[in-house]
């Protein structure tokens, strides 16, 4: 499903964010990317989203070499992946419903389909009663759930999250991660970059640990393994 082959990323001024990374993620897996700040987690995710280009190496997503992908194809790559960020990235002038619907409008979904689908995902993330509220009227946890709803409404095969709990308190963080586990159970591959030790340790999922751009550990039922 996702395969990194000898992937390196060097930024300007010679900063090496990733050096010779190799791993493979199967369909349906739940994978944590862990590591201290600056380890290269976000860079790895940016490469997946084709927001950055690797300096060398090959990245395969859904059997396609995305490093050889044309600019025109990038939107379609991104439609196969739902993304969630630490800062939620919701549109402030749109309601919860409209924020989720927007993701469907962008891909040209039929209005009937939008009216059917949006309430479904909102109920999945437990926000049915907040559909008409604006983001700033919601708590951080609720905003992140809206972002999750938006990420999955087009039924992507991969859900990608970069520190989705970074701005949330522990209880709320748990709710988000449980939701992601639920989404994973329904068949979506999940890749989550985080340094939330408690969550990683408790979930007992695959852990890929990065340090200074290198994979230092890749365990099937791993723990975080760092003293924060």
């Amino acid at each position: 499903m996702i395969k990194f082959i000898n992937v390196s990323k060097k930024y300007d001024k010679g900063i090496i964010a990733l050096s010779n990374i190799n791993f493979e993620i199967e369909s349906g897996e739940f994978v944590f990317i862990v590591g201290p700040s600056g380890a290269g987690k976000s860079t790895l995710i940016k490469l997946l989203l084709k927001e950055e280009e690797p300096t060398s190496g090959t990245i395969i997503v859904n059997k396609k070499d995305i490093t050889k992908m044309k600019r025109k194809e990038i939107p379609y790559l991104r439609r196969s992946m739902g993304v969630v960020f630490q800062d939620f990235r919701l549109l402030p002038n749109k309601t919860v419903f409209e924020n989720v619907a927007f993701a469907m409008e962008v891909v040209g979904a039929h209005p009937k389909e939008i009216r059917r689908k949006v309430p479904m995902v909102l109920s999945l993330v437990g926000l049915s009663d907040k559909a008409d509220q604006y983001p700033q009227q919601l708590s951080g946890g609720e905003q992140q759930r809206v972002a999750l709803a938006r990420a999955i409404v087009n039924e992507p095969s991969i859900l990608i999250a970069d520190e989705p709990t970074g701005n949330l308190d522990p209880d709320t963080s748990w709710e988000i991660v449980k939701l992601m586990a639920e989404i994973n159970k329904r068949g979506t591959t999940v890749v989550m970059a985080t340094h939330a030790k408690d969550i990683v340790d408790a979930m007992k999922k695959r852990v890929i640990a990065l340090e200074k751009g290198n994979i230092v550990r890749d365990e099937a039922r791993g723990v975080y393994g760092y003293a924060l």
Binding site: L49, K72, P75, R78, R89, L90, L91, V107, N154
Partner: peptide, 16 residues
């Protein structure tokens, strides 16, 4: 620009 950025992540085409 935030909105544009979000649209790009959702998979909006340049023309959209």
């Amino acid at each position: 620009r935030r909105e544009i950025n979000i649209m790009k992540y959702i998979g909006a085409t340049d023309w959209f």
